[in-house]
Write a protein that binds this DNA or RNA. Structure first.
Ligand SMILES: NC(=O)c1ccc[n+]([C@@H]2O[C@H](COP(=O)([O-])OP(=O)(O)OC[C@H]3O[C@@H](n4cnc5c(N)ncnc54)[C@H](O)[C@@H]3O)[C@@H](O)[C@H]2O)c1
Ligand SMILES: NC(=O)c1ccc[n+]([C@@H]2O[C@H](COP(=O)([O-])OP(=O)(O)OC[C@H]3O[C@@H](n4cnc5c(N)ncnc54)[C@H](O)[C@@H]3O)[C@@H](O)[C@H]2O)c1
Lengths: 206, 206
DNA sequence: ACGACTTTGTGAACACGGGCACAAAGTGAC
DNA sequence: GTCACTTTGTGCCCGTGTTCACAAAGTCGT
């Protein structure tokens, strides 16, 4: 089900073009998957396609959004206002997709109180209140590796159960908490691996 | 083999602690995988473990680094000097792991010439020269979605065959080019999905 | 109203990756 | 030198996710 967001994005682009209906073949290629896979994925949501025609773009968008829980806005907090945290805070793409950044947090007293992207940076001590009063549900960790586990613990203790982690460390959390990790260095190292394979292949058969 | 970078990171941390030898069990838990999986992964590289003892930390680090092609520095260019591109340019974690950011590029004439993180921003027209003269091997795309395919094409035409894409679009490239995608919104949407599942489960059995 | 055509939904085969469990191999104490 | 102990390397099994291929279902032109 990790592909649904990709389908949703492709559908949104089609809707913007004024397309009303789309076949599994077209949508699949727009989303970068095979048509068989797309159809099987969509069949799990129910039968929203019309044989001989395809899928209604608006209808399918709604169904996928509902399946992903995007009918409501999700409140998000960003923890760690360094380089990365500030770039994330300034990013407009979140709001467009139903995520509302309700708080920017930092541990450092010199950063707290600063205004970043129009929002005042608050202390991580405010976390329990944010969960209680504002329904904070998702935490984004943009602290250095050393601070990540601590930041994560504060989020979890406050009641946040979905975490997106940018720090290159393995976080330990209770079972009911879901952590997803975005790791730049790992991605680059995988690319380096491929680069090396290409170089070797070229040396053998130039 | 996408787990090797994780092992390498765990090993580096262990080496910093002065640890000389490590068992598959310990290393696996540090890297967040099962011990059986770790052993199977490492066995693909060759037999560098000693039965009854474990793995030599330094030796294993070298072997993994060699397998990943990290014995050399990889030249990297960042395309798109907006919010995200600037955060990436200022990030020191790259150099620590063997990646050298040799160029910051943008299409916008008003941005070209600006100095970001100590480096002058250049035009994407310089790409062929960067590949030819400086061995540029990896391109990072941090442009808005509309510009991403164009930026990618320029990279590929110049001879770059490893691309890391931050823009939320599916890039089309020739077979020999490897693209890896980092997509924030998708990650958040997956977290929203889990958040909704939790909410539903709680409503049923409070 | 009917038939040719298009496209979905799905059952069945297939491939891959992960986990289990154990034999082989090495260590170290006596 | 031998024996008990630890830990690796690996053969086998199993579940999940992907692709193939086709029947069922619907559309559109005549
Ligand atoms: N900057 C990038 O482009 C980039 C790229 C890839 C990965 N990362 C990762 O993202 C993370 C952040 O990078 P950065 O460059 O923004 O770091 P940074 O050092 O610029 O900023 C870190 C901020 O986090 C705050 N902090 C530290 N511990 C905290 C805690 N326990 N609770 C709350 N706030 C805390 C600090 O006060 C600081 O303001 C790092 O783990 C880095 O590896 C960054
Ligand atoms: N800012 C974030 O925190 C963030 C988070 C997630 C994803 N993203 C994604 O990263 C991308 C960049 O985001 P941003 O906020 O930095 O955007 P931005 O608008 O701030 O900056 C984009 C820069 O790219 C340049 N550019 C545009 N087309 C180009 C081309 N063809 N070649 C070279 N340069 C080109 C522009 O001149 C501009 O300087 C977007 O696709 C966005 O969706 C950003």
């Amino acid at each position: 089900m990790a592909r649904l967001p990709g389908y949703l994005r492709a559908l949104t682009a089609l809707a913007a073009d004024g397309t009303l209906s789309v076949s599994s073949e077209e949508l699949a290629s727009a989303a970068g998957v095979s048509s068989a896979m797309l159809r099987k994925d969509l069949s799990h949501l129910g039968s929203y396609g019309v044989r001989g025609v395809g899928y209604d773009v608006d209808r399918l968008s709604s169904e996928i959004a509902a399946a992903l829980g995007l009918t409501q806005d999700w409140p998000v907090a960003i923890v760690g206002m360094g380089n990365l945290g500030r770039a994330l805070a300034a990013y407009r793409g979140f709001a467009e997709r139903g995520f509302r950044v309700i708080a920017l947090l930092d541990r450092d007293e010199r950063v707290v109180g600063e205004v970043v992207a129009g929002t005042r940076v608050r202390s991580t001590a405010d976390l329990p209140a944010l969960v209680e009063d504002d329904g904070l549900a998702i935490g984004v960790i943009a602290t250095p590796p050393e601070g990540a586990q601590e930041a994560c613990d504060e989020l979890v203790d406050a009641g946040v159960r979905s975490v997106l982690n940018f720090a290159p460390v393995v976080l330990s959390v209770p079972d009911e908490v879901v952590v997803r990790k975005v790791d730049l260095s790992t991605e680059l190292q995988i690319l380096a691996f491929h680069g090396q394979r290409l170089a070797v292949a070229e040396a053998v058969a130039p």
